Amino acid sequence: MSYLDVLDPDFDFDTPEVHAAQAESWYADSPIGLLVLRYHEASELLRDRRMEHDGKRYMETHGIVDGPIYDWFVPMIVNHEGEHHRRLRGLSNKAFTARRLAALRPFVREQSERLAGRLTGDETRDFVTEFGNRLPLAVMCRLLGVRPEDYDLIGTWTADLGLVFALSGGGDVVARLERAVVGLYDYVGHLIDEKAARPGDDLSSDLVTAHLADKSQISREELSNLLVTLVFAAHDTTRHQLDNAMLAFAGHPDQWTLLGRQPELAVQAAEEVIRWQPSVPTVYRYAVEDFDYQGLPIAKGAYLTMCVKVAQRDPRAYKAADRFDITAVRDVPPLQFGAGPHHCLGAALARVEVSEALAALATRLGPPTLACPVPRMTPIGIQGPEVLPLRFG
């Protein structure tokens, strides 16, 4: 069995060592447990009912047994199964109906075109600050009915919530995450009271109305937790996906030029950047019972990491898997949104944002060029550059 030290500061999933491990077997060992390297096995295990998130165990594994982070993460919707999960998911689905997404698309397009206009000229710009962070933050606030003047107030908190999946990184992660949780819970409390008094045509108002009509359907505590979680889900992963898209195209300027000439490829291009440079390179699960998988004993409580970035370049699942090609029609969906009952609620919205952003940028600007090397990013957790200095040709 190969051993991959994912906690080594210099580790990177896109290396010959990792590709050799994938060729050898569907799994490898690591300091944090088994790594699942191939697409088919990762997809199956994400759907396997013998595996679950187990937020309580995840927190305790990282030494967090109480406090604001624990109180937010453990009751989160993804950490529930069965009827409890279906009840909360049914309410959350209201955010992502075809009608609501269709109504949001013109706003996403207008914001994308406006922000793309800020990047014209020859000077170097930080794409994260000028575009990657701003677009999903504006969309998330529009979806939830947050006032535009509050965007900057909650933007830092929503960005820092993603650190919950990088607790093994150490440093000031826990302190930043706790500040974000406390700040957002306080903000959401005021938002709930505001929507109760003056409801609007937004998701927050819909959820508050459901709570006031039947508190057994969703309690105040569940409502607060759900809104904080939706704020995080609608912002952090998408901002990093937009930034990662620029990294992908910076390495493939011919593909950018092609997209600029054929913006109708934007939807396909969004799928390819999600496959090639996912903002969620790993997804974890715990075993809830002892079982055997492909001859390998999996013990109850075992921690498995689905290596999404590696699996999405698995030549067993994708033709020409090692090529970034926006014209390719892929036969299987990306894994970064999960699978089964816990498939990401916001996947459709993320695709809308990335495709509209790519169309707006590529038709207005030449290929992106990195002004300086991007610091190495942690392979575990949500991944994307914090600063991305770009020049557009």
Rank of each mutant, 00 (worst) to 15 (best):
M140C: 14
R239F: 10
S205M: 03
D243W: 04
G145Q: 00
L258V: 04
V332E: 07
P263K: 07
L191T: 09
D54K: 04
Y286C: 05
R198M: 03
G251P: 13
D126L: 03
R147G: 01
L358G: 00
P253K: 07
T378E: 01
R50G: 08
G145L: 09
D126P: 09
Q268D: 14
C372A: 14
I64W: 01
Q22A: 15
R86V: 13
S219A: 11
V164M: 03
D150A: 05
L227S: 09
G63W: 03
G366V: 00
D150H: 15
A180P: 09
C307T: 15
M51D: 12
A98C: 05
V164D: 03
A302L: 00
L161E: 01
H53Y: 11
V332M: 01
R134C: 05
H40Q: 11
R87V: 00
H84Y: 10
E194A: 13
A210W: 03
T282C: 01
V228F: 05
L304M: 14
G162R: 07
P333M: 06
Q277D: 13
T237R: 02
H211P: 08
P9E: 11
G366Q: 08
P9I: 10
A287W: 06
D325W: 03
A266R: 09
E83C: 03
L144A: 11
A42W: 10
D66Y: 00
A197K: 11
K300R: 15
D193R: 13
L137Q: 13
L88H: 07
L304N: 06
R89P: 01
M246T: 03
V354Y: 00
L258K: 12
D290Y: 12
M51G: 09
K300L: 02
H252F: 06
C372E: 14
R198P: 01
L119I: 08
F96S: 05
G33L: 04
R38F: 08
T282V: 13
G189I: 08
H240E: 05
